[in-house]
């Protein structure tokens, strides 16, 4: 049972795999990245940076996918990261177009200036 945890996820080929980095490490990092993206999205007022933080979240997710791919030695993880990339790109395009549009209206990038839809 314990062997699963300790099997290392080092790279197969050169350089020589370092046995002790387990799946958990990568998951922690990806979770941390995801959460930082979330915090960034919630706290930063500049719209572009907000979208940038969503990109960071994508990044976190991608890392987790790759880690699991590596753990199961399947290539699915990586294909998904490709799709993540593709979606991120699409999202970036759309988002930035929108930001430009909004910027033209209000002369500022702050998300605070758009609050007509309130009760």
């Amino acid at each position: 049972m314990d062997s699963i945890l300790s099997t290392s996820l080092a790279q197969l080929a050169f350089p020589e795999a370092v046995p002790t980095i387990t799946l958990a490490h990568y998951l922690f990092v990806s979770a941390a990245m995801f959460v930082m993206g979330l915090i960034g999205f919630m706290t930063r007022k500049n719209m572009i940076i907000m979208f940038l933080c969503t990109e960071l979240m994508f990044q976190g997710a991608g890392l987790a996918l790759i880690a699991f791919g590596r753990h199961h030695l399947g290539a699915d993880g990586q294909t998904f990261v490709i799709f993540v990339l593709c979606v991120a790109a699409a999202e970036a395009a759309m988002a930035l177009a929108l930001v430009v549009l909004l910027f033209r209206h209000r002369e500022s990038l702050s998300s605070q200036s758009w609050k007509e839809l309130n009760g």
Binding site: L9, A10, Q11, L12, A13, I21, Y26, V29, E55, Q59, G62, L63, I66, A67, G69, R70, G77, Q78, V81, I82, L85, A88, A89
Partner: peptide
């Protein structure tokens, strides 16, 4: 990190595209 996880293609794809 991708490289460490032996996903070389993705690593480079990320740098190039992303």
């Amino acid at each position: 990190m991708y490289l460490l996880l032996s996903a070389e293609f993705m690593a480079f794809a990320l740098v190039i595209i992303y």
